[in-house]
Write a protein that binds this DNA or RNA. Structure first.
Lengths: 135, 135
DNA sequence: CTAGTTGCAAAGAGTTTGCATGGCG
DNA sequence: CGCCATGCAAACTCTTTGCAACTAG
C-alpha cells in the first residue's frame, strides 16, 4: 500500500488512463514504460494497485503472464464484463442485465456469482460483423 | 498431434480422468507424475491434447502458470461453467439456464457469448455455508 | 525397421526480491 | 529529515527446446 505519489506512479496511472479497459500484460506495460520506470517499479505498483482494487487482474490471455485491466476507477464490481476474444476489448454489461443474470444463476445453481471477478468471453458485435464480411 | 499411444500418454490421460473438471496447473500435474513421466513429456502432451481439443486451457488461477481443465470428453461447450473461488471446483451450469443467460446477453449487449470459453467465478453453495458457519 | 516420443538438461520468458540510493511530504 | 519507493541485478518459477536414446506400430 503506497504512501507517496511518485513520478513513476503517476506515469503508470497516466498510461493506464490511456488504455482503459484494455487487457495489458505486466511485461507489456513495463516494456512500454521502460525508459521512464524500472521494471520492478512497474511490477510493484501494479501489484499495489491491484491490492487497492484500482486495477483488476485478468491473467487469462493465453500466455502465462500477469494480465491487468484498468477501469478508470469506475465501480466495476457492479457489472459483469464482456471480453471479446477477437479484439480484446472489454465492455461493461449493463448493471440491470448483470443482476438478472446473477440472480438467474443463484436461483438455478445455488451459486453466488462474483461480479467483479467474472469475465464472460465471446465475440462482440463489431468483430462478429467483421468475421462475416471477410473470408 | 500424436500418432503413438505411449505409456506416458496413457498415464497422463488416466490422471486427468481422475481429476475431471478440476483446474490443474501444468506444473502441478508434472510434479504429481514426476516419477513416471518427465516434465517435458507432460508439457508436450498437455499442449498436444489442448490442440486436439481434449483439454481446455483455463489459465486464470491467480498465478502465472498454465492451468488446464479436463472434461472427460463431454460436450462442455454447451454449458457455461461455474468455478468456485474457495474450493476451486467447477460445475457445469444447466444448459437451459446457460442458454437463457446467453440469449439475455445477446439481446442486451449484442455480444455472442462463447460458452466453452467462459468461466463464471463466484462461491458455491457449499463454501457459502462453510463461510457462514466458521469465524 | 522407422519415425514419433521421451528424458535430461540447458535456455527462455516473466516475475520477484535484496539492498543501497533517491525523492516525497 | 525520515521513511517509502526506485533501480539494478541476481534469484526464482514455470515453460520450452535441442538432441540422443527408446519404443510403439
Amino acid at each position: 500500500m503506497p504512501k507517496y505519489m511518485t513520478k513513476q506512479r503517476r506515469l503508470l496511472t497516466e498510461y493506464l488512463m490511456q488504455h482503459v479497459d484494455e487487457n495489458l500484460s505486466a511485461s507489456q506495460i513495463a516494456d512500454a514504460l521502460s525508459d521512464q520506470i524500472s521494471k520492478s517499479a512497474v511490477y510493484r505498483n501494479l501489484a499495489d494497485m491491484e491490492a487497492e482494487g484500482k486495477l483488476h487482474r485478468v491473467t487469462s490471455g493465453g500466455g502465462r503472464e500477469a494480465v491487468y485491466r484498468f477501469s478508470g476507477g469506475q465501480a466495476c464490481s457492479q457489472s459483469l464484463h464482456l471480453s471479446c476474444k477477437k479484439c480484446g476489448k472489454t465492455v461493461h454489461m449493463q448493471q440491470q442485465t448483470a443482476d438478472a443474470l446473477v440472480q438467474s444463476v443463484a436461483a438455478n445453481n445455488d451459486f453466488t456469482v462474483d461480479k467483479g471477478e467474472t469475465v464472460i468471453y465471446g465475440v462482440c458485435a463489431a468483430c462478429r460483423n467483421k468475421k462475416a464480411s471477410l473470408s
